[in-house]
């Protein structure tokens, strides 16, 4: 049972990844000129960076456009 389940999960992950635009491309399409120091639309990356550095997180939610 494990192999089909794992295959299924990989397929789902692959499908989701295929649907999502690379963040740099999303930023470009949105014509969002936010400074390059922002982690762009990636909360997981922000949590990982905060764990590494010990800094708090500032998450800004903005509808663009």
């Amino acid at each position: 049972m494990r192999a089909p389940l794992a295959t299924g999960l990989i397929l789902i992950a692959g499908f989701t990844a295929a649907q999502e635009l690379p963040k740099a491309e999303l930023k470009k399409r949105l014509k969002d000129d936010a400074h390059s120091s922002w982690i762009y639309d990636d909360l997981s990356a922000a949590f990982a960076e905060a764990k590494k550095t010990g800094k708090p997180i500032l998450a800004v939610f903005r509808c663009v456009p």
Binding site: W38, Y40, A46, A50, L58, V60
Partner: peptide, 23 residues
């Protein structure tokens, strides 16, 4: 703010991990 035009605010911002979420 996103372009960090206010220098004072940008210095405070550097003490955070700043993430911009657009969806």
């Amino acid at each position: 703010f996103a372009r960090r035009e206010d220098v004072g605010l940008a210095l405070v911002l550097d003490r955070f991990v700043a993430v911009r979420v657009v969806q």
